[in-house]
């Protein structure tokens, strides 16, 4: 059980570490401060304090998510800029087709979903089950181990295997 005061104390104690971690992810120290500030906003709003078992891990995980959002925005921005220059040099009607572009982006997403589903379906049954419990049902390794009646170290192996498969599948098209 955790009170908001306790979590706040842990947050303050971890602030410097969180900043360093986010700065490493973003390669941007000034931006990291803002993100870590955001982490606090998130936990203030979080309603499931009682579910937090590993508060330090929880804080770093949120910080990691926020950093990833920024990284994703940067990638999109970059892709859009590249696309823009390609199109404007040849024609000006890129704007009129933006809905098509949007549909195209969504098509890419649909294809990505299929790839992911196929990759997960191809896994050996136990790896698949372990990964699905961990990813979709948000179980910790320990919980997955208890659910499947296997060792925690085996759960880890299954999940590593699943992640390898996913990274292999998506290497060329996550952006």
């Amino acid at each position: 059980m955790m009170s908001i005061e306790e979590l706040n104390a842990i947050y303050l104690a971890q602030r410097a570490n969180l900043c360093r971690f986010v700065a490493a992810r973003l390669r941007d120290e000034a931006g990291a401060e803002d993100v870590v500030q955001d982490v606090w906003m998130r936990i203030e709003k979080s309603k499931k304090l009682e579910e937090i078992e590993n508060p330090v891990g929880y804080l770093f995980t949120i910080a990691g998510h926020l950093a990833l959002d920024i990284i994703r925005q940067r990638k999109r921005q970059k892709a859009r800029e590249e696309k823009w220059t390609d199109e404007t040099t040849t024609k000006l009607d890129g704007i009129a087709t933006s809905q098509e572009q949007n549909a195209e982006a969504s098509l890419l997403q649909a294809e990505r979903i299929i790839k992911v589903r196929t990759a997960i379906a191809r896994l050996p049954p136990k790896s698949r089950r372990a990964f699905e419990l961990h990813r979709m049902q948000e179980m910790s390794h320990k919980e997955v181990a208890a659910e499947m009646g296997i060792a925690v170290s085996t759960v880890e192996k299954h999940i590593i295997r699943a992640m390898r498969e996913l990274v292999q599948t998506l290497r060329d098209d996550v952006s």
Binding site: A24, N102, R171
Partner: peptide, 29 residues
Amino acid sequence: LEEDQERNEAYDLVSLSWEAASEQEPITL
């Protein structure tokens, strides 16, 4: 991560793959 930017990029790929694993279908725009 701090030691090498390539590690950071590799971690981007891994995190985005992890995220992609929970994308849902059908997609409405």
